[in-house]
Amino acid sequence: MNNPPEAQTVDFPHKHLLGIKGLQPAEITSLLDLADAEADYNRTSIQKRDALRGRTQINLFFESSTRTQSSFELAGKRLSADVMNMALRTSSIDKGETLLDTAMTLNAMRPDIIVVRHHAAGAVELLSQRVDCAVINAGDGEHEHPTQALLDALTIRRHKGHIEGLTIAICGDVLHSRVARSNILLLNALGAHVRVAAPSTLLPLVADRLGVEVHTRMIDAIQDADVVMMLRIQKERMAASMAPSTREFFHFFGLDMDKLRRARPDALIMHPGPINRGVEISSAVADSSRSLIREQVEMGVAVRMAVLQVLARNLPE
């Protein structure tokens, strides 16, 4: 394992990665194959190499994020890209105009790849229309978070060997979750059997048209599941009466050892982080040997390295 993985084998005819939507199953699979090799290579002592030497990567985060931003930063640096972080936490200024102004300013700096997180759905796509470089969506509002779905799929695949045919329960605040949207698209594309579980107030009105099995009782959703994927719920949802209280939410939708008994004995436990202990997941479950939460973070770097390389390959020399 001394030869670094080669991105040349991946057929990925896209300029940007804006979402899972629009990707072919074969494209997803080859991205995962590359990321899988990256993950192995990352575990060797020689991690750094020259794949993106001379390339400029800007991490443009309009919404604060510790783990995603540092994951992208590390991925770029391992590939020898020049990485610049820009944290623009704007709340009061006119967002539409600022976003496009920012895009044009950045474009003038001639970067090769911009990684964008924004609180408004569609903002990343809007920005991609105004720049010449490749754009990676690192989460736009409640729309998509494609690298999260890819790293989740990689984590599952490395443990189960495949995605197809697995029963995967996604539980929690499905309505407001970009992680859920991207995961549903990806897991469905790869042939998994996806279930979602949430109170009706935290499900899209048309949840039944997402190609998933919809449950309002979590214990039904995780019955015999191969993977239980928890979502983060924000406290604001309680204030908005979408769920009555933390206590009640945990009672019905928090993953504890008792509910987990319903899943298959070898079920994997996942969470995109950061976790709310005692709200959507108990500490006992989060810290158990079946929890892959830390491994998801590791796979995140590998997946982002893979994405950076395949997009860089499509850039002009």
């Binding site: 009466s241 769920a243 009555p244 206590r247 009672h251 019905f252």
Partner: peptide, 8 residues
């Protein structure tokens, strides 16, 4: 104003 703990 706020929903009660209907499930509990």
């Amino acid at each position: 104003k706020e929903m009660t703990e209907i499930g509990l």
